[in-house]
Each structure stands twice: as C-alpha cells, then as structure tokens.
Design a protein around this nucleic acid. Sequence first.
DNA 1: ACAAAAGTGTTTTTTATACACCCATGC
DNA 2: GCATGGGTGTATAAAAAACACTTTTGT
Lengths: 246, 246
Amino acid sequence: MKCKPTINTEPSERNPLVNKALANFKVGVDNVIFSVDTQLNRLLVLLLKRKEEPFANYWSLPGTLVRQGESLQDAAYRILAEKIRVNNLYLEQLYTFGGPRRDPREAPESFGVRYLSVSYFALVRYEEAELIARPVSNISWYQVKEVPKLAFEHNQILEYGYQRLKNKLEYSPIAFDVLPEEFTLNDVYQLYCTVLGENFADYSNFRARLLKLGFLLDTGVKVCRGAGRPASLYRFDAKAFQDKLI
Amino acid sequence: MKCKPTINTEPSERNPLVNKALANFKVGVDNVIFSVDTQLNRLLVLLLKRKEEPFANYWSLPGTLVRQGESLQDAAYRILAEKIRVNNLYLEQLYTFGGPRRDPREAPESFGVRYLSVSYFALVRYEEAELIARPVSNISWYQVKEVPKLAFEHNQILEYGYQRLKNKLEYSPIAFDVLPEEFTLNDVYQLYCTVLGENFADYSNFRARLLKLGFLLDTGVKVCRGAGRPASLYRFDAKAFQDKLI
DNA sequence: ACAAAAGTGTTTTTTATACACCCATGC
DNA sequence: GCATGGGTGTATAAAAAACACTTTTGT
C-alpha cells in the first residue's frame, strides 16, 4: 500500500549528460477484444498467431504501431477493423505499459529506441463479427479461460482487460452496445452470466433491478424461442439513461 | 454510447507508403499531485509556472520527458521528487493522452516527432510535503476549485484525476497512505469531507461504516484537541485489510 | 454550568437476496 | 397435460441515511 520511493537525490545535477538523454519511442496499441457467445455461454478474446520474431508462433493480442498523424484511438480502431468486421462495439483505453526492456526488440544494440504499449479494451457483438485474416488459422476467438501463454506481457494486459470488462458491465450500460437493437431480458441475463459467472445473481432479482433502473423500454412485441412463454422485446433508451446520470 | 467507426477500407493496401510511416514519439509523464489541507478544508493540486514556450507563463501540471532506461513510473516518481519532498504518498497511472497535434511543439515542420503524455495521479501528505523549486513563485498548491486555464490539455487531465481521486477514496484505503501512522476518526472524516464534499455522509454513519470494515485498530491512546472530549487514536491494519479482500 | 468535540444508539428507508408461485407456449 | 422458459410477488436480511442522545473535556 505505502509507496516510499527513494526521494530527492537530484541526480540530474550530478550527472547531467547520462541522465538527461531522452528515450525515443515507437508507440504500439494492443487491443483486448472481447465478445460473448451467448449460445454456448462463452466469453471470448480475439487472438492472432504471430508470424515474425520476436515471439514467432505465439498467440498475441491484435496490435499495431501508431502511424504519423494517427491518434491512439484511431490506431486502436484501425487494428480492430483490419481483423474483424463489426458495426456494434464499445471501445476504451485500458492502460499503458512501458517499462524499459519489456519488448525483446529493445535490444541493447538498438540503443535509444523503446516500445511502449497503450492497450485498449473492446467489446464487440459476437454474432456479427466476421474475422478477416488471410490465413484463417492465424486468427481466432479463444475462451478467456483457455488462453495460452501469449507474446510479450499480453497475458497481463488480458487479465487487466478482463477485470475492466467485469467492472464496466456492472456499472455502465456497455452490454447494450453489443446486444441487438431489440432483445429479451433473458438475452441480457445470459450475457451477464457469461461474463460475470453463473452465480452473480438470481434471474428474477436481476430482472427487477434492471427494470427499476428505468431505461429499458418494453416494445410490447413478443418473441417465441422454442418452447415456453414468449418473451417481451425491450430496447435501450439512451436518453432515459442520460437523464438518470444527473 | 454506440461507437461506429468507419470500418475496413484497408487503406494500407491502397496507399502503403504514406500510411505505413510510423510516428516517432517522445513520451512525457504528467502528474496530478493532490494533497489535502485538513486544517483549512482545502483540496489542493500542485502546479508549476512554465518558463518556456509553448505556454510560457501558464500554470501546468509537473511533467517531464522519459529518459533512456527509465520506466514510466520511475519518471513519475522523479518529477514528484524534483518538486516536493514527501515520504508518504500513493501513486498510480491515470490515462494516456496522445492525439496528434495536442502539443504545439508538434509543428508541421517537426515532421514525425510526436509528444505523448502518460498521466499519473498522486496523493501526498500535505503536512510533510515541502515544496522545492528555485523560484518559489513558480511552484504552488492550488485549490482544485480555483485552478486557472492550464497549459496543454492539463485541465482535462486534472479533471480526470479528480474523478479518480473521488472514486479511489470511496473504494480503497488510499487515505491511510497519507494520514499519519496514528490518527483520530475525525481526521479521516475531515479528509473525506474535503475531497468528497461536506454532504457525502453524516459523521456518525461514516464512523460506524469505517469501524465495521474491521481494519482500524484502536490504540486506546487518547488525544486532546482543544476543547471537547479526547479522541481515540487509531492505526490502519494493512494485514486485516488484505484478509478482507479474500 | 455550558459549549465543544467524541462517541453510542435507535428508527426509518432502501437495497439485496432467496425463493415460491403463476403464465403462456410447444409438443 | 406437462415440460419449458417467461414473468410476478413476497418474505427476510443487510446496508444506508437520518437523527437523537450521552460522555468527557476546556473554559
């Protein structure tokens, strides 16, 4: 808990030349792209098999290096768009990893060139996400529970993203960015169960809580899913949600 | 809410040369350093008056550029240590700002050199924090409510850090990183009030909630503060806190 | 004695949790 | 008619909020 750095040696005044040399960076963006397969109750991450060194043949998070004139978020969208075709998604910045020597490419001989990774977290609609990559064998959804040892520190980034996903789901309406326009309450419940685990809440309590929030509109339209009573279709009311915030 | 990026034009295959040029970065670290003056009930941020262009004579967050061999966090500790002397503090990464053209130094003529800002958020013990800067007039604590227009996008970073401070205070024990080893429950209350606002909770309810958490030890020692009944001194039990987490 | 600060307790309201049960459909 | 999933309600427990009251000090 307590952070007690060694403080105030003012090194810059002792050894100005060595200490003042600035690092030159290339900045990478790595995406933790989640989706939820509600049919099979699986929480998935998108992984890519690396072709080049370092970490050739390891699976990794989709990443890219930031280009001239490109914002970090633009870069995040770019890799996403290069790997999958989706229209409905939520995306936000996660964390920046950048200790020296985290990337093996930062060999001592490439003195002064550092790699920094700004990670982004995304949630996309599984049903519409179409994987686009030349060798299909090099791109794949992996169940979060079954992810192997990844390249770089990507396991750590993934864990961080997974934690964020669980928090976001509880405190903000990102689920509705990824559900179809119209959905049943059970669709929402399945999604939450898959991400948060089966025993996060009882269906009827979940339902009551969700409706009490007041931003779900019952369209009145009923839909049949096999046997059982038909379910109502709801839609997310973004305006009502905004009003709640004030 | 919905993010609908324009997707999949695969620009890299159309115009490979222009698009594939990677940006070269210098990475800056900017600190939002908070402290709480519980005597005067003021929440403070540390600001520095800039001497050089761009934004000469503007107040700004303490920042620095990352040096060779230095981690981001090391850089964050370095600027902190260059500006104030403290032993008790909490520090964590905030957010990374890095759209192109955020820094006026990124003039079109300095083609290819970009500045990226990784911001850190810190909370330090006000009473022991000693400001160290050559011209004293160039460094100062500012009340968060009275901060002027800052250099770069620092107002935005500050706002982001303020939000984080409020969240952290409610959900984690960072207050005890900044309180003395032994403190009264009223000391804790004052700190929370100053950050969260007077009406975040009634003293007796706050007190009950805090004690029920079970990681504050009553030392039995009483201390008198002017008139009124003497207060018990408590200390934070880090082990008990850890145990609660499991 | 009285104001000031610390500390305790009680009541009410709200929210969470655990279930029991009714409803509408397909087979 | 009964299994299946959808939907409602109730009873209990826990947490949050409001507030009244006692205790111990300085003056």
